[in-house]
């Protein structure tokens, strides 16, 4: 018999996320990694500003709510103060790749020993569907009503590729959660991003390509298809940097 249980590292509080939103899946994957690694008592999470702002209510570990974009800096402070703790941030695309780009790049280049979960759904969800730094060319949003025009709004930021150009970071990967196969793959990658920290390997970032049916104006199923057909071709999945693998080879 298969018993469906909530991971221990999630509180009993019901998620506030919209139907079909993939934050719930990603929260669960993070919690499962914490459970599997037995780090619930030493984990400290940093919540972003964005849809996941109240992540602090959902994880049973100690949590800090950061200002918009500043989670990697806050996590840096926590980790430097408590190196024995496992510190992670959970951030959206506006938070991490727009307002917080400096904090992201510099935490990565310092190879700060933290884990970053980066949820890329190509839109600002909390404020009601504005253009994100990762919105696709031509994507219609509240602030790109005629479709993202790359001539005036520029191109989407490919975070995993961008950070992989740095010498600092230890582990950079991109996963998706639009089907079972991808979710299982994402689970492994997220767990590895935590393991790296426990082993002192440094900065690990997992970009999770996600869906936002509400603000994309789609049914949940349609949104998952859109991830497959539009998002993944622009944001290819894979491991972009893995210093631990390089070590094994060497």
């Amino acid at each position: 018999m298969v018993v469906f249980e909530k991971p221990k590292s999630l509180t009993q509080k019901e998620f506030h996320y919209c139907p079909g939103c993939t934050h719930g899946i990603i929260h669960r994957l993070v919690a499962e990694a914490i459970d599997t690694l037995g780090i619930e008592g030493s984990a400290i999470g940093v919540a972003p500003v964005g849809c996941a702002v109240m992540a602090y209510d959902y994880f049973t570990c100690d949590m800090v709510e950061a200002a918009h974009g500043r989670a990697p800096a806050v996590a840096t402070g926590i980790k430097r103060s408590l190196p024995e703790c496992v510190v992670f941030t959970y951030q959206g695309d506006g938070d991490l790749a727009s307002i917080g780009m400096a904090e992201t790049v510099h935490a990565a280049t310092r190879n700060e020993n933290i884990t970053v979960i980066f949820v890329n759904n190509a839109i600002y969800g909390m404020t009601g569907g504005q253009m994100a730094p990762t919105s696709l060319p031509g994507q219609v949003t509240q602030t790109s009503p005629y479709g993202r025009d790359v001539k005036t709004a520029g191109y989407p930021v490919k975070v995993a590729e961008l950070l992989s150009a740095l010498d600092g970071p230890s582990y950079i990967a991109r996963v998706a959660v639009n089907n079972v196969k991808h979710v299982l793959e994402a689970k492994k990658v997220i767990q590895k991003a935590f393991e790296n920290q426990i082993r002192g390997k440094g900065f690990s970032l997992v970009e999770v390509v996600s869906a936002c049916p509400t603000n994309w104006g789609m049914t949940p199923q349609k949104a998952l298809d859109w991830v497959e057909e539009k998002m993944i071709p622009y944001y290819p999945l894979g491991v972009f940097r893995d210093k631990t693998a390089e070590e094994v080879q060497a």
């Binding site: 940093v46 800090v64 950061a66 200002a67 500043r70 800096a73 806050v74 996590a75 840096t76 402070g77 926590i78 980790k79 430097r80 103060s81 408590l82 400096a102 904090e103 790049v105 510099h106």
Partner: peptide, 18 residues
């Protein structure tokens, strides 16, 4: 040495929280 004063104060926030 933080990347900016903004980052520095947020690192302070992190440590202060501990």
């Amino acid at each position: 040495q933080a990347e900016s004063e903004i980052a520095a104060i947020n690192m302070v926030y992190g440590v202060a929280g501990t």
